[in-house]
Computed example of a mutant assay.
Amino acid sequence: MRIFRVALVVMSVFFIVSTLLPIIPLNSWWVQIFVFPRLQIVCILLFLALLWLIFFGLRQKLNLIIISLIGVSILYQFYRIYPYTYFSPTQTKIADASDSLSSISAVSANVFMKNREYRELIEVIRKKKPDLVLLLETDEWWAKHTDTLLNWYPYSLSEPLDNTYGMMLYSKLKLEDAKVKYLIEDSIPSMHAYVRLRSGDRIKLYCLHPKPPVPPESESSVKRDAELLLAGKMVQQNKEPAIVMGDLNDVAWSKTTRLFLKTSQMLDPRIGRGFYNTFNAHIPLMRWSLDHVFHSESFQLNTLEVLPHVGSDHFPIYFSLSYLPQEKEEQEPLESNTAKEEDTVDKTIKKGIQKEQKEEREEQKD
């Protein structure tokens, strides 16, 4: 029993600390990694609290302290994920009626570059018939084996790469001023285009896939955060109806995503509807939301769903939105950044750019 008690203390302290660590403003991967599994940590903490109560009770002071800290940790973790539970009010309104002329639908799929089950992906796309298809982690092999999509999608933008950050965008709707940009890192592309809806309206599309804050990809979240917040600033400054989509390698409940939403004044259709976890498709107990869609107030939701497994470590995600600018006042984004938050955004972007420049200089010396 003594060994069991020691093990229980160690596990309790570990998960209490894992709750507190992300509160510290550090970008290191070993801190940021604990932002992802908040729901899993809540479940573990609940189980640990139950074990304490069953086997040791509240008689000893140490027991009471540990159980109290576990309780505080559970409350904090739930506070962070609360917006993405059914208990929270929704942020995006369901469109009263879907008008095909003003609607836009898309499938976003991280294909996992080494995955070879391309037929399953194409079959999912064939069934859903989205207006847009965004494929991530695409190299030349994937470009070759998905070229059948060109028969269905007359407009496309392609940037296949062998570093797991290639992107391909297919569209039934006309793409205008479509460009591949490298916002922070010279090896990490993003796609920017105007999409002409069937109604004739024009909206801006941003497709992103920054590096995750996990070795060996990156030792910190600095450049990922910088890319997301830079995209948020672009949306803010352009003041156009816009959609941001892709594998952001960040979870919906992170501080960075919240800053992105406040900066861009975009809405998250998952708020009040659920997690819509897309990663890891191979490990059911370790899943969280990495693939995202955000939209301006001018859009309302028709459909949002996670699609079946296609061989990747990500599930594809499908959404359909209606462009209803006349009803934009019915939806409210998060409050705009405070002066302090705006300063944080600017400093994060600057820090990410400086970090990339420093790494480039070091590579040139080598």
Results as ranks from 00 to 15, higher is better:
I3H: 03
I3W: 05
A7L: 13
V9Q: 11
S12Q: 13
V13M: 14
L21T: 00
I24N: 04
N27G: 02
W30P: 00
V31S: 10
Q32F: 04
F36H: 12
F36M: 13
R38L: 15
V42N: 08
I44K: 04
I44C: 02
L46V: 10
L51G: 08
F55I: 04
L58H: 14
Q60G: 06
K61F: 09
K61N: 03
N63C: 13
I66G: 08
I67E: 00
S68R: 01
S68N: 02
S73R: 00
Y76T: 01
Y79M: 08
P83V: 07
Y84T: 08
T92H: 10
K93L: 14
D96E: 15
A97M: 03
S100H: 07
S102T: 08
V107C: 15
V107R: 11
A109H: 11
V111D: 04
F112V: 02
F112D: 06
M113H: 14
R116E: 15
R116T: 15
E117W: 13
L121C: 03
I122Q: 12
I122F: 09
R126P: 00
K128A: 11
K129T: 11
K129Y: 07
D131V: 01
D131F: 01
D131Q: 02
L135I: 00
L136I: 11
T146R: 08
T148I: 12
W152V: 07
W152D: 13
Y153W: 14
Y153K: 12
S158R: 02
T164M: 12
M167Q: 15
M167F: 14
M168R: 13
Y170N: 10
Y170F: 15
Y170G: 04
K172V: 06
V180T: 10
K181A: 06
E185T: 04
I188G: 05
P189G: 04
Y194N: 07
R196Q: 11
L197A: 01
D201Q: 07
I203R: 05
K204S: 09
L205A: 11
C207M: 02
H209K: 07
P212T: 12
P213N: 06
P215T: 11
P216F: 08
P216H: 05
S218Y: 06
S220R: 13
V222Q: 10
R224T: 08
A226D: 03
L229T: 09
M234P: 02
Q236L: 12
K239D: 05
I243C: 02
V244K: 01
V244A: 01
L248C: 12
V251N: 10
V251Q: 07
A252C: 12
K255C: 00
T257K: 15
R258W: 06
R258Q: 08
F260I: 06
L261M: 09
M266Y: 09
I271W: 08
Y276L: 01
A281D: 10
I283T: 14
R287M: 14
S289R: 14
D291Q: 10
H292N: 04
V293L: 14
E297F: 05
F299D: 11
Q300W: 09
T303F: 05
L304G: 07
E305D: 12
P308C: 06
V310R: 09
V310C: 13
S312I: 05
Y318D: 10
F319S: 12
K328C: 04
Q331H: 08
P333S: 07
P333Y: 06
P333R: 06
N337F: 01
T338D: 13
D343F: 13
Q354I: 02
E356I: 11
K358Y: 05
R361W: 00
E363K: 15
Q364C: 09
D366F: 13
